[in-house]
């Protein structure tokens, strides 16, 4: 199936004795935007971190862009090249400038000459609207600016899939919008996106499907109108009533 971007088939995962992912089955089509929500500890971050093997699953199969994720280090590195990730705490490299943050992987992984990598990085820094910060260090930027740099850094690898792990949770309220706007723009260009977030406005606006997870399982999955308008599972209803006031 060439148009499947990510496939989970019967995936199970444990942290020690704790069963953190339970019987996950999910097909994400290319260009599809998935929003994953659920209470903390429900396994939603773990789920997307399995896609680029920051977490290891113990049972079942995960196939990303046609490549199976298993112990094959080469395959994992190939997948990571094509899967960008944005973290809750940005994880920018504090010892490198904004520009160097963006060019590091293109230079060392894609083997781009420095000049081309710089041009590429500036292109994406313009996309996230902070080209003037290129020579600064991450510590000199606001949280919202840092997260936009993190998005540009991931985009510089020209990924086919983007993973967002609670990208706005660590931001001050007035900076959430600038990051969400950047993500909306990205969604408009047809990027395959898996977004763990509690920003339900964002989910309504861009998601093709919304997934609700609880206790390591996918409880409910539906198009946003149906998901918000007519939640079928009791737990989904409870969760939505708690976060939508």
């Amino acid at each position: 199936m060439p148009d499947t971007a990510v496939r989970f088939i019967g995936v199970n995962k444990w942290f020690g004795q704790f069963h953190v992912l339970r019987d996950i089955n999910l097909d994400v089509m290319q260009g599809e935007r998935i929003v994953i929500c659920g209470p903390s500890g429900s396994g939603k971050s773990t789920l997307i971190r399995c896609i680029n093997r920051l977490e290891q699953h113990q049972e079942g199969r995960i196939i990303v862009d046609g490549l199976e994720i298993d112990d094959d280090v080469k395959a994992i590195e190939d997948v990571r090249r094509d899967v960008g990730m944005v973290f809750q705490h940005f994880n920018l490299f504090p010892h490198l400038t904004v520009l160097e943050n963006c060019t590091l992987a293109p230079i060392w992984v894609r083997k781009l000459p420095k000049r081309e990598a710089d041009a590429l990085a500036m292109k994406f820094l313009e996309r996230v609207r902070i080209p003037e910060q290129a020579t600064k260090y991450p510590g000199q930027l606001s949280g919202g600016q840092q997260q936009r740099v993190a998005i540009a850094r991931a985009l510089c690898m020209m990924p086919k899939i983007m993973l967002f792990d609670e990208p706005t949770s660590a931001l001050d309220p007035e900076m959430v919008k600038e990051v969400l706007d950047t993500m909306v723009g990205l969604a408009g260009e047809g990027m395959t996106m898996l977004v763990v977030t509690h920003e339900m406005g964002f989910a309504r606006q861009v998601a093709d499907r919304v997934i609700f997870m609880d206790q390591g399982q996918i409880i409910e999955m539906n198009a946003p109108e149906e998901f918000f308008g007519n939640p079928r599972n009791e737990r989904t209803r409870l969760f939505l009533s708690q976060i939508l006031r």
């Binding site: 990571r80 990730m85 490299f93 504090p94 590091l104 060392w108 992984v109 690898m157």
Partner: peptide
């Protein structure tokens, strides 16, 4: 050096050695 630094390096497709040499070690030595 926080674990997120290593994860960010790996997620970008850098190898373990590249992540250590370019990201973790410079910060650790500092």
């Amino acid at each position: 050096v926080s674990r997120g630094q290593r994860e960010a390096g790996l997620a970008l497709g850098l190898s373990r050695w590249q992540t250590t040499a370019k990201i973790v070690l410079p910060q650790a030595l500092r």
